[in-house]
Design a protein around this nucleic acid. Structure first.
Lengths: 332, 332
DNA sequence: GTGAAAGCGCTAACAG
DNA sequence: CTGTTAGCGCTTTCAC
């Protein structure tokens, strides 16, 4: 529909009307020094002309496009939607626009997106990294300011270790959940993990100690189907299983569905703890016991870090919380 | 951590290495005409130097920043997350970045965001409008290319009526649901609406005909609390109610929770149909009968329209589908 | 305290 | 077919 679009008001127009040079307008508008009278004249003219400084001009001049880029695996996943919400909320307070890209948990797409960030001269990015992180190194060297959120990458590169990360305290979350389950008498506890959740799996191993049975740890890809297959497979293969920890809400959903399908009753036949508290956890039957993660906080804090200049903490660990509902019972 | 950031390769570097003028480089890279030999030399140099054209320079020159802006009420709401996913998916095929803003369904914030779009010289926006749409008129006149998604605005302005909109066929959805419920024998059917769902309410009135009881239509704001209050209020005030249509997933959730709290059994005491099929609808107890909306399609189509030049349809109506699960029963 | 002028990287108009 | 050049709107020296 692209209308004719009249020329927009520029700094030159304001300068002219105020009877000053453009430099003065620029200074006044960015809070520089100017005599009271000049300031008033400039502000006045700007208001009268409804002047909006063009981000385009500024960006080119400053060689950076401002704003925050956000890279997440999947916007339809509640946890990342909440994270995004946190980023947006922080960005808004800085009046910075947020550009979002979804990686589908695919390192290749991620690399592609990082490339386009560079093309846009974006220099601040909050990312939930998917790959091994190799791709980040050149970008970081090129001056990109990165903060990881929700996960960090397993990088052997030096630069990667210096990237700040805002994470949920998975380790504690897993430990608490495992202790809760063992406290209920469970001995055969399974773990449904997504590929790339090395951290959680490791925590699971550590928390289980002697009880560990590697065969009870299964991995799935991010897709619904893969999650279901993993869950159903585990339940069928190991009828001795008495409890399951699901590494994410998709996996939890898959576990509920698979259990229903296989006529495994929760919590009578199987106890279930799911990572991530989603709205439906409470509506589910039975209501699901979950390890809640502060998704929106993670996003907010990450955005805050990426906006902040200077020295920053290398890692921010945010607490998780075990919310006990009705999906766990004593071992039968 | 804002590293030293070496100067990036520019078109000038490429031109120099290829031994041609910058204009030639620009032409070759944007598919203009050039001799085979020149083209090769340029492409070669570009590759060797790993040249990425700066969007900044191009944007300033073209007076438009490219990319698509997306304005939605709430990214944590499944329906808008799916819509966003559709927009992202389409934008990706055009290799356009997407900038996202959440309005919280607040016209003031929406106006604010539109302002910052203008500041960024964004000229394409897909929006789920919140206000009455007055604010859009000046922006559209200023050359902003708008496509509404999921809703349209109730504008008396001429310009607004020409804005293309991609919508779910709410009217048909409501009619189907109401017919389904009346077919089960229900006569006292309530409607839980969000403020601004005038279209759906109107469709509800039309579909009910003689059965209409205005007192059974209640409105809530977007918040969880407001939704719950509306649902609980309706159930308590009108025990003669035998079925409810919830205008969105938040309202549906509220209805389930309120019913549980008030010991109203679904579907025995109350039949429930919810707008929007969300993953948890199937996990809920009982599984919820829903009017499914193609959220991701809506986003995709809207993005497609905003990218497309020239004549476009004014309205695209996408079908809804009644998915019958277990939350409705015959009137007792 | 203020203005003139340079220039960020790119594309489009024009000349050759 | 190709090179030269003029800016897009802004910020930032550098003189005054």
């Amino acid at each position: 529909m692209g209308s004719p679009a009249q020329r927009r008001t520029t700094i030159k127009d304001v300068a002219e009307m105020a009877g000053v040079g453009v430099a003065t307008v620029s200074r006044v508008l960015s809070g520089g020094s100017a005599s009271a009278e000049t300031r008033e004249r400039v502000l006045d003219a700007a208001t009268k002309l409804d002047y909006r400084p063009s981000a385009l001009g500024r960006n080119l001049r400053q060689q950076r496009s401002g704003g925050i880029a956000l890279l997440i695996p999947d916007i339809t996943d509640s946890i990342y939607a909440r994270l995004t919400d946190g980023v947006l909320s922080c960005a808004r307070s800085y009046r910075e626009p947020v550009t979002i890209g979804v990686t589908g948990d695919d390192p290749e797409q991620e690399a592609d997106l990082v490339g386009s960030l560079l093309e846009q001269s974006m220099d601040r990015v909050v990312a939930v990294p998917s790959g091994n992180g190799e791709m980040w190194t050149p970008a970081i060297r090129a001056g990109l300011d990165v903060v990881f959120a929700d996960r960090r990458v397993s990088g052997e590169q030096r630069a990667l270790d210096e990237v700040p990360a805002v994470l949920a305290d998975d380790r504690a979350g897993v430990r608490t959940a495992v202790e809760y389950l063992t406290g209920l008498g469970h001995r055969k506890i399974g773990f449904l993990a997504r590929h790339g959740q090395a951290e959680r799996v490791e925590a699971f191993r550590a928390a289980l100690g002697d009880l560990l049975d590697e065969d009870l740890i299964v991995h799935a890809r991010a897709s619904r189907d893969s999650a279901y297959a993993a869950a159903a497979g585990l339940l069928q293969r190991r009828p001795d299983l008495s409890a399951v920890l699901a590494g994410g809400n998709k996996l939890g959903e898959a576990a509920v569905l698979a259990a229903r399908e296989l006529d495994v009753r929760i919590p009578r036949d199987l106890s279930l703890v799911m990572f991530d508290d989603v709205p439906w956890a409470e509506l589910c039957s039975p209501p699901l016991t979950v390890i809640a993660q502060p998704g929106q906080d993670i996003g907010y804090r990450a955005a805050e870090l990426v906006m902040r200049q200077g020295r920053r903490p290398r890692t921010v660990l945010l607490p998780t919380e075990l919310i006990i509902r009705g999906s766990c019972g004593p071992r039968r």
